[in-house]
């Protein structure tokens, strides 16, 4: 019975990735570009979900990890000639280091205090970016130079101005993230993280060092979010302080809540839906954030488990 489920689950994920691969041949330019962005945002949200959905820790400052990747990679590419691949790696390392430091401090708190502490740290990160505006250009941001728009890796020449290459690069990163999260969540570590979410004291009394497990989850979460940021900055040739605002932290929460916290594909579904909802609304009004507000209230009131969480509860109990 378990193995039958495993096959179903693997088939579902491979199917989703295959569908994303195939739609690029039929999508019009605008949606092609939009979906590239959405896939990167989905990686960000999947990182967020690692912490919120699986470990039960609600962070309100995740934009700082996205921004750490964004600026780590973007500023390396802008100010040095280390090349795009190295800049990407440096971005990820920045995110991992930041999440380790933040985790060691913030995880001394729980519940509401953890939410406020992460929000405040996020705010500090944003203010720091604007304070060093001589280097970061603050809200105005930095545009990547032409030298950082293409690179050679393992004999392959990659052109980041090419939409098709960009799309498939984003898809590749999404597939990688999906694989990592899949392995972690469905293995022994995932079982312990979920146990911490359900009852931390009990998990401690089963002999698990819950602090270290939570720290590990936060670092993994922050690193994945930073990878999304690094890729976003390099692919779209722009880094700016808006990506570090609290609004970006809340978007990760919203995408995850909408799709279903604690489901592997939830953040992806939530990102796609919310992106298009906001995209369509902003054609009609500048107050498109109204949708964000209404969505948050409606979700938390009526669908706290999100779309996939509700589907799992009612119909498909095997959904991971």
């Amino acid at each position: 019975m378990r193995s039958e489920n495993t096959i179903r689950v693997i088939a579902l994920h491979v199917g989703v990735l295959a569908a994303l691969f195939l739609v690029q041949f039929v999508l019009p330019d605008y949606h092609h570009l939009a979906l590239t962005r959405v896939m990167l945002l989905a990686i960000y949200a999947m990182g967020y979900n690692m912490l919120f959905g699986y470990t039960g820790l609600l962070s309100l400052g995740h934009a700082m990890f996205f921004a750490a990747g964004l600026y780590g990679a973007g500023m390396t590419a802008y100010y040095t000639d280390l090349g795009v691949p190295l800049a990407f790696v440096i971005g990820i390392i920045c995110g991992a280091a930041l999440s380790l430091v933040i985790g060691v401090i913030a995880l001394r708190t729980t519940g509401v205090a953890f939410m406020i502490v992460t929000m405040m740290f996020g705010q500090v990160a944003y203010l720091t970016i604007t304070y060093f505006t001589d280097y970061t250009r603050g809200e105005e941001g930095l545009t990547m130079p032409t030298s950082a728009r293409s690179f050679d890796l393992l004999g392959l020449h990659v052109d980041l101005t090419n939409a098709v290459q960009r799309y498939n690069l984003a898809l590749g990163l999404l597939a990688l993230t999906l694989l990592v999260i899949f392995v972690v969540v469905r293995g022994p570590i995932g079982r312990v993280l979920i146990a911490i979410r359900e009852n931390e004291t009990r998990t401690l009394m089963l002999g698990f060092d819950t602090f270290r497990m939570k720290l590990g989850a936060l670092v993994l979460s922050g690193t994945i979010s930073a990878m999304a940021g690094a890729a976003y900055g390099l692919m779209f040739a722009y880094v700016g302080a808006t990506f570090a605002t609290i609004q970006y932290s809340i978007e990760a929460l919203l995408f995850t809540l909408l799709g279903g916290a604690g489901t592997i594909l939830g953040p992806l579904l939530g990102s796609i839906l919310m992106f298009y909802i906001i995209d369509i609304t902003s054609e009609y009004t500048q107050a498109y954030l109204l949708v964000t507000g209404v969505a948050l209230v409606v979700l938390v009131l009526f669908f706290p488990k999100g779309i996939l969480g509700t589907i799992r509860e009612r119909w498909l109990s095997w959904l991971p």
């Binding site: 079982r191 009852n199 009990r202």
Partner: peptide
């Protein structure tokens, strides 16, 4: 103090 939302198997598997 069990994990009510997890299966019996997963509860003991944690131990």
């Amino acid at each position: 103090s069990i994990y009510p939302t997890l299966t019996v198997f997963d509860n003991v598997a944690l131990s």
